[in-house]
Nucleic acid binder design. Structure first.
Lengths: 256, 256
DNA sequence: GAGGCTCCTTGCGCTGGCGCAAACGGGCTA
DNA sequence: TAGCCCGTTTGCGCCAGCGCAAGGAGCCTC
C-alpha cells in the first residue's frame, strides 16, 4: 500500500516484520548493515548482545553515557525527551527493525533521549567502541550510518518547520500518517497504529495538549477519517488525513 | 568568554576565525577532518574546489540533487526550508568554518534546505562521490562525520522539544544565545550577532511572527538586555537572557 | 462483579500571540 | 539633499488553542 501526495508525504506500510527470524536475517535487513559482505555481517553478529526490556522499563535514560547502539527486534519503544519542568516530549515511537541510540556512534556523548519499552520488547545491542571498530573496518557501514543520520536530521528539520509554521490540526494529521507508515498494521477497518498511544503522547508529538488532540480526533471520527479507542487510533481513510495535512481542505475547525 | 547555566545551555564565543589562512590550515581545524594524518588531509585538499557566492545568491536550492558538501571559509550563509505555502523557515545561520550540505554524504538525496549567502561569501566544496570515496579510504572521517551528524540530530531534537513546549519569549532567548555563540562577535557594548538578521528571520527561527519578535526585543531593550538596530541585535547581558530562557524569572509578558 | 485506576471526553472561560494596518526611520541611491 | 525602499514599531481586534474541572468509559485486579 502506498500513495503519494502533492508535496511528497509518503505512506508506506512496512511489511509486518516477522520477529522470529534468525538474527543474521534481521541484521541483513537493517539499513545500517546493508551491502556488507557475509564475513562482515558475521563479525557484526558476533559483537551483538541480546537484551530484553519489560513494558514500562527503559533501555536507557536521557543523560546516561551513550555506550550502546540498539536494534529493536520485538516490541515497541518510545523515545522521549524531558523538559526542564519535568514534563516530556515523545520524539519517536519505533518498532522492530529500527535502530536507536545511534548517537553512541559518536564519541563521548550522552543519550539525548530516554528509550522506554511501550510493551515487552527485545533487542540486540553493540558496545559503542566495538561498533565504531566495525565501522572503521567496514567503511560501507560508515556510509550507511551517514545515510541513516542524514535521514534523521532531515526528519527533524522538517518537523521543526511544521511545528513552527503549521496549525495543530495539520500537524496532528501528519503525525498520524507518519505513525501509520512507521508502525501501522493493516486491519479490517483500516490501518491500526500498532502502539499504545495515549492522547497525551500524541499531544507531545505534535506540540499541543491532550484536550486539543481529543477534540480534533473526535471531529475526525465523526467525519469517518479515523476510528478511536482507548490508546488506539485506526486510520480509516488516509487520503482524508492527507487532505488535512495539505491544503486540499479548508481548515474546518468548528462547523455544525 | 564562557558560562554555563542550570541546565547546561552553554555560550562559547568562537575565536574570531581568520579567514585568510591557507586552506590546509582551515581544513585541519574543521571537525570533519580532525585527526586525519597529513597525507589524508592533503588528499582532501586536492579534491576540494573553491567557490564564491555573492550576497543574496545561493550555494544550492532546496530540492537540488545533493551533489556537493560545502565548507564556508568567508561570509555568512542562511539555511532555509520552504513551506508548502511559499513562506520559509530559517533553520540555521552559519559562519566561516562551518560545514553545510552534509546531507550529500548520503547517497541519492536532495538538499532539504536552500543555502543563501547573507553576504558575499566564499567556500570550498567536494563532490559527493569523491568525499564518499575519501570517507571509505579514511574511516576516521566517517567517525567525524557521524559525530557531526549526531550533534545536528540532537540540536534539532532539542529545538523541536523547545518549540513544542516553550513560550515564544523563552524560545527567542535561546535562539539569541545560540546565535551569539555561533556567530557572535565581541564588541564594546556586548556580543554582536554578526549576521544581518531581520526580525522576520528571528521569527522564522523561533516559530513566531516578526511582530511578536519586535515586541519582545523592545521589551528586552528597555530592560537593558540587548541593544537593537536595523538587522542587528547586540546581546548586552547574556545572563539575563539565560534567566529568561530558563525558569529563573517569572515570564513577565505585560507589566507597566 | 465490584472497585478502582487510568484514559478519554466535553463544556467553559480566558489569553498568548497572530494578523493587519498605519506610521516611523535608517540607510541607500540619484 | 531629497526621495525611496525596506525593515521596524506599535495599536487594536480577534481567535486558536490552552487550562481547568467535572463526568464518562475501558480495562485490570481482587
Amino acid at each position: 500500500m502506498r500513495f503519494r501526495d502533492t508535496i511528497g508525504l509518503v505512506l508506506t506500510l512496512k511489511a509486518s516484520l516477522v520477529t522470529d527470524l534468525p538474527l543474521s536475517d534481521i541484521l541483513q535487513k537493517t539499513a545500517l548493515f546493508s551491502g556488507l559482505e557475509p564475513a562482515a555481517l558475521q563479525a557484526v553478529q558476533l559483537a551483538a548482545h541480546t537484551c530484553q526490556s519489560a513494558a514500562g522499563s527503559y533501555f536507557f535514560l536521557q543523560g546516561d553515557p551513550a555506550e550502546r547502539v540498539f536494534l529493536l527486534t520485538r516490541g515497541r519503544v518510545k523515545l522521549t525527551q524531558m523538559n526542564p519542568d519535568g514534563s516530556q516530549v515523545l520524539l519517536r515511537a519505533v518498532g522492530p527493525g529500527t535502530l536507536f541510540g545511534a548517537v553512541a556512534l559518536a564519541q563521548g556523548e550522552l543519550y539525548p533521549v530516554s528509550a522506554e519499552s511501550a510493551e515487552d520488547s527485545g533487542g540486540v545491542y553493540w558496545g559503542a567502541a566495538s561498533l565504531q571498530e566495525l565501522v572503521l573496518r567496514h567503511p560501507q557501514m560508515a556510509l550507511n550510518a551517514m545515510s541513516l543520520m542524514a535521514e534523521r536530521v532531515q526528519e527533524f528539520q522538517q518537523r521543526f518547520r511544521e511545528l513552527a509554521t503549521e496549525r495543530v490540526e495539520r500537524r496532528l494529521a501528519r503525525a498520524l500518517l507518519r505513525l501509520a507508515s512507521q508502525t501501522g498494521r493493516k486491519v479490517a477497518e483500516g490501518v491500526l497504529i500498532d502502539l499504545p498511544l495515549t492522547r497525551q503522547d500524541l499531544a507531545e508529538m505534535t506540540g499541543t495538549t491532550l484536550f486539543t488532540v481529543s477534540r480534533i480526533l473526535n471531529q475526525w471520527e465523526t467525519r469517518g477519517l479515523v476510528t478511536l479507542g482507548r490508546e488506539r487510533v485506526i486510520v480509516r481513510f488516509p487520503h482524508g488525513l492527507v487532505a488535512v495535512a495539505e491544503d486540499l481542505l479548508p481548515p474546518q475547525t468548528s462547523q455544525p
